[in-house]
Design a binder for these strands. Structure first.
Lengths: 196, 196
DNA sequence: AACCGTTATGAACGTTGTTCACAATCTAGG
DNA sequence: CCTAGATTGTGAACAACGTTCATAACGGTT
């Protein structure tokens, strides 16, 4: 089909943009750099993607898939729910540390004022919460699905907040062991409350 | 002294920038808009501030002071430590909701790649943690100061994460009551663990 | 009143993302 | 195999941005 050629360029552009973000961060991403490294003209980017933001979303889409795989792997040995909570938090921290710039791009990217994030991408983000729902439902069997989803979102936000702020330059860096310990205790406090 | 004239312009520029961020958000802040509304030439901004980032930091500095006042007010009736934790979290949420754009600017702003945040501004950010240290020390008297500071940072990060993600377009909006309830439960879980 | 350091000015510059007229390429029908 | 029409590639040009700088206006001191 004729789509193949167009898709090949799209893939190349996403590859290059991903490498650029990984090495230099989202803020340093430039349309001219990406197209030069991809071996195409500046304007070709706008044949493949509506604009630069959509290219970034394509990179973020990949990162979310890899992150979800990492979280799934943390549950591969079917741990007890309390351990599942700890494993998920640890896996999230590990992924953030190992993919700092790509992970940061997931939350640092902002759409232009007149545009909103497409629905398909919002749905991809929500996948993150859903990994938490299984152990939460096991720890709190009385919770209905909606409350369970809400709780998953809250717990993810708390863990995310701890990881995010510890990895920003805004605050003095933290010793990795101290961060690990704090995260463990926070998840423990949450888990205990879920069981009560 | 001759500083007065310069300081007057600085104050005006911060006033205008603050209003712009409040109404239209940090991402929409433009040097030309600010100077036009301040009634001065474009270049005058660079006499008053090193660059636009330093002007933004001046606005953020003000916001941090107001936020700190709001947190202090939440402790004005000398509540028991468990209540202090709840009051602080609630006050933080209220401030974020009432000052969405200015509060978001505190954490969304990024320095250019070759610059770091000045020390005096990093110190201002750390004030946020310190408000938490008093109730934490009361709940966990055995903790030494360093651990107490670390715990304060972690707990702030968790609460901040919950508030931040709930106020972003990245995820579907949350019912205010649901958010309030989730935040209360999270702080309760944390407080209980501190007491144990 | 004359001098000089300080502040104000806005045109000009370099760097962005994005567009668009044009060229190259590909596809399909004869 | 050739040609017409559609699709894709190209990079100069554009508008918007932060920042600079030569020059003008100002303000205090002698």
């Amino acid at each position: 089909m004729a789509e193949t050629k167009r898709d090949a360029l799209r893939r190349t552009l996403v590859d290059v943009a991903q490498t650029h973000i990984r090495l230099r961060g989202l803020a340093a991403l430039r349309a001219r750099d990406v197209t030069k490294d991809a071996g195409c003209a500046l304007g070709s980017l706008y044949n493949a993607f509506e604009d630069l933001d959509l290219l970034i979303l394509a990179v973020n889409s990949r990162t979310l898939k890899r992150l979800d795989s990492a979280l799934a792997a943390a549950l591969s040995d079917a741990p007890a729910p309390a351990d599942a909570m700890q494993n998920l938090a640890r896996a999230y921290l590990s992924f953030a540390v190992d993919n700092r710039q790509l992970w940061a791009a997931l939350f640092d990217h902002r759409m232009p004022a007149d545009q909103t994030i497409p629905d398909w991408h919002l749905k991809e983000h929500e996948i993150l919460f859903s990994r938490l729902m299984v152990p939460i439902a096991q720890l709190s069997p009385a919770l209905d699905d909606q409350t369970c989803a809400l709780r998953a979102r809250t717990i993810f936000s708390a863990v995310h907040g701890i990881v995010k702020l510890s990895l920003e330059d805004r605050f003095v860096a933290l010793h990795p062991d101290a961060l690990d310990s704090e995260l463990t205790q926070m998840v423990e406090a949450i888990t205990i409350q879920l069981q009560s």
